[in-house]
């Protein structure tokens, strides 16, 4: 565990909790892509199946359980409790365009051709693109609530911090996982445009709105 890894995990946790609190406090999931949230629930479920097969640490187990629990709580909010506020008309990204290639790739490029390893690989690839329905929704409506941009910022920051964690681990432990690194790079690059808008607009007190 190094400082980048820890702050990365905490940033991820912050993102998840910001989203849950935003929905709970405003009693609304307007502007949130339910499709991205479904994809994140699939990501956590397929990646953390090793909860049933191996124990790494109390930290590791607790975080996995919290991430999975929060992912399903978010889905419950969006599709059941606050369903009336869900903006499904703008959440029109075709997720099969992500699921099919990602599923195929995880069968072709993995560390080991075993069910758990393929599911883990699938989750890594899927996570890298899971935010696209949310970004698509924002580009469609042309704006995002400030609290939603904070959520996106911490969610993007988390994988960027993991990139530094992997550089650290490569130099000091000789550890590297090419699948995670390449997918993490893709994931971080997808947020770059958003990071730019967040820094130049939101941090200066303006609402994030895109030119028509």
């Amino acid at each position: 565990m190094n400082v980048f890894r820890l702050t990365g995990d905490l940033s991820h946790l912050a993102a998840i909790i910001i989203l849950l609190l935003k929905i709970w406090k405003t009693r609304s999931c307007a502007g949130i892509s339910g499709k991205s949230q479904i994809l994140f629930a699939v990501v956590f479920t397929s990646r953390y199946l090793d909860l049933l097969t191996s124990f790494i640490s109390l930290y590791n187990t607790s975080m996995k359980v919290i991430y999975i629990g929060c992912a399903y709580a978010t889905l419950y909010f969006v599709y059941m409790k606050f369903k009336a506020t869900y903006d499904g008309n703008h959440d029109t990204f075709r997720v099969e365009f992500l699921l099919v290639p990602v599923g195929g790739l995880s069968f072709l490029v993995n560390h080991d051709f075993s069910p758990l390893e393929i599911l883990w690989t699938f989750s890594i690839y899927l996570e890298s693109v899971a935010i696209l329905p949310q970004l698509f929704m924002i580009s469609k409506t042309g704006e995002a609530e400030t609290i939603t941009t904070h959520y996106l910022f911490f969610l993007g920051l988390y994988r960027a911090l993991y990139l530094f964690n992997w550089i650290w681990r490569f130099y000091f432990e000789g550890f590297f996982d090419m699948i995670a690194i390449v997918a993490g790079l893709v994931q971080t690059i997808l947020y770059c445009d958003f990071f730019y808008l967040y820094i130049t607009k939101v941090l200066k007190g303006k609402k994030l709105s895109l030119p028509a």
Binding site: R5, D9, H12, D50, S54, I56, S57, N60, M63, K64, Y67, H111, D112, S114, E117, W120, Y162, N165, F175, F176, D177, A180
Partner: peptide
């Protein structure tokens, strides 16, 4: 499999 990195990350 020794080519599979350990899964200690989240």
């Amino acid at each position: 499999d020794e080519d599979v990195p350990t899964k200690d990350e989240l």
